[in-house]
Amino acid sequence: MSGDDLALGLLVLACAGMRGAGLLVAGRLSPDHPFVRWAASVSLATLAAFVTLAVVAPTGALALIPLSGRLLGLGAALAVLASCGGLLAPLLAGLGGTLLGSVLG
């Protein structure tokens, strides 16, 4: 087994452990329990931070998309969401906006 395979195996075990710990701790709690509400709040905030950083200060491959592409993609997605609802049409509009902004930018 190579070092890369061993690293992947360790990460798999750690991720299963983290998921299992959450299920074990909260399995008998109600959705309104303060601990569960705190965890939901942290999860949502993490998601919001992820989206914010991906648009405003991306790293890795995302940084290859010019700011105009990221903003145009997000703007197009939100505009279609506000006017039509659903998720698929806004997402396709967002992808189109991102590609257009990347080409123009």
Binding site: L11, G20, L23, A26, L29, W38, V42
Partner: peptide, 24 residues
């Protein structure tokens, strides 16, 4: 990759609050 395991675990640590929020 072995040296990066702790960082990769931290990057996925959101699984804990997500599992807590979902479990009930």
């Amino acid at each position: 990759a072995l040296a990066a395991v702790p960082g990769a675990v931290a990057a996925n640590a959101r699984f804990v609050p997500m599992a807590v929020a979902l479990a009930p």
